[in-house]
């Protein structure tokens, strides 16, 4: 994917989005003492977004030298895997509680990112998990998920 295609594609998507927003905001018609109701601001912004997006598309079409995107494919895959891990972590946190899920998340993420030293992985996950838990739960008194499996323990 190059910069020219991205500009045209993003411009087109935003044009469509701005039309949808304008149409959808029409239901929030003004009531009360003046005609500038809850619809005015989103509709005015969607008009401006439409114009700016058209400008972006125009700029894209005019681009003579398209720049290739500076993306490292392997790194992008790792970022994607980490995102999946984060979503799984949120689910796991509800099941096994904050502490256990956090230690597991830290450990697995380090494996994915290529940390080869087993001792570093274990020590960092347990120590960081414990510190974060202690700070948020005991010091800042923020109720962290206990997990349905361990609710009886607490």
């Amino acid at each position: 994917m190059d910069s020219k295609r991205i500009d045209i594609g993003v411009g087109l998507a935003l044009c469509v989005l701005s039309v949808v927003i304008y149409w959808y905001a029409d239901q929030y018609t003004g009531r009360g003492v003046n005609s500038y109701g809850p619809n005015f601001f989103p509709q005015a912004l969607s008009v401006l977004l439409f114009l700016a997006s058209m400008g972006l598309m125009y700029q894209g079409f005019r681009q003579q030298m398209a720049e290739a995107l500076d993306v490292d494919r392997r790194g992008l895959i790792n970022a994607g895997i980490t995102l999946v891990l984060a979503v799984s972590y949120i689910g796991l946190m509800r099941l096994v509680g904050f502490y256990a899920a956090s230690v597991a998340f830290l450990y697995i993420t380090m494996v994915v990112l290529g940390q080869k030293n087993l001792k570093v992985r274990i020590a960092s996950s347990v120590i960081v998990g414990s510190i974060v838990y202690a700070i948020f739960f005991y010091l800042l008194k923020i109720p962290l998920p206990e997990g349905v499996l361990f609710e009886s323990v607490y």
């Binding site: 956090s102 830290l106 993420t109 380090m110 990112l113 290529g114 570093v120 960092s124």
Partner: peptide, 10 residues
């Protein structure tokens, strides 16, 4: 960074 990044993520 392989240790730091997961910590920041958390």
């Amino acid at each position: 960074a392989r240790v730091l990044t997961p910590v920041i993520f958390l």
